[in-house]
């Protein structure tokens, strides 16, 4: 897991760089590189990293999202994308095609007429892909839950990774959701985790159940933010050696 960088310059032995889980240290402080491995004798200026981590680091910092807005929340999403809050600084850009998108903000009220179209767009996105449900409407139907044509939560149609409640959520909340999504992406395996839509929907359902119990005990919706923008359960521990490929 460690990254060894033996610097050619003896004058700065204390150099130490830490970057998104990729550690560049003087000595391999890491047991994942066997003592006799030739990797111990790396050349000056050569980085050794766990490929999975490197890839996830790259992925999580270039999450491109689809140009796709549904209702009033989309206006707030555009504001978040524009200069004042500037989603670009997290490496996220609007893409005009699902083929180029890593994730999608479901930003607004989902109607029964729109739901199949969203499903189609979701299916057109290449794996790995993530979904962020933005706003009360996308999470649960919000103020329109119970209306004849409103889907009570986009997770009835496609699996959701991060929920950001609010009507609409402030751009800060949306950015927080994006950062949590980056956390998820960093936990992704090199090989795609075979999580079927059904499995993911089940995860979502059990999490909702837990949240509901939480809200009940709290007696109000306070603390929903933490619960709702929840990181999905990670069914693999990175760095156990099974998953990652050590180079």
């Amino acid at each position: 897991m460690g990254v060894t960088r033996r610097r050619g310059r003896a004058d700065r032995p204390e150099s130490k760089i830490r970057l998104a889980g990729i550690h560049m240290v003087e000595e391999p402080a890491d047991h994942s590189v066997p003592r006799r491995s030739p990797l111990r004798k790396v050349l000056p200026g050569v980085f050794v990293a766990e490929f999975q981590k490197l890839m996830n680091w790259g992925r999580s910092n270039s999450l491109w999202y689809m140009t796709f807005g549904l209702a009033c929340c989309a206006i707030e999403m555009m504001a978040t994308g524009a200069a004042r809050w500037d989603l670009d600084r997290f490496g996220s850009f609007f893409r005009a095609s699902p083929r180029q998108s890593d994730f999608m903000f479901i930003s607004g009220t989902v109607t029964e007429k729109m739901a199949p179209r969203i499903k189609l767009l979701y299916d057109q996105m290449a794996e790995p892909k993530w979904i962020l449900a933005m706003g009360a409407c996308a999470c649960t139907g919000g103020p329109y839950a119970g209306a004849y044509n409103v889907v009570p939560g986009i997770d009835k149609v496609i699996p959701v990774d991060v929920y950001v409640p609010g009507c609409p959520p402030r751009p800060e909340a949306l950015l927080d959701g994006l950062l949590r999504m980056q956390e998820l992406v960093k936990q992704e395996g090199l090989r795609p985790v075979p999580r079927t839509a059904a499995q993911r929907a089940k995860d979502n359902a059990s999490r909702r159940e837990a949240e509901r119990a939480d809200v009940e005990t709290a007696g109000q919706g306070v603390g929903r933010m933490e619960n709702d923008a929840a990181v999905r359960p990670n069914n693999e521990q990175p760095g156990t050696g099974e998953e990652g490929v050590s180079t």
Partner: peptide, 15 residues
């Protein structure tokens, strides 16, 4: 009018 969607899509006040 009565909402005839499947139960999972319907939300009532009781929920």
């Amino acid at each position: 009018f009565v909402d005839q969607r499947p139960a999972a899509r319907r939300v009532t006040r009781g929920d």
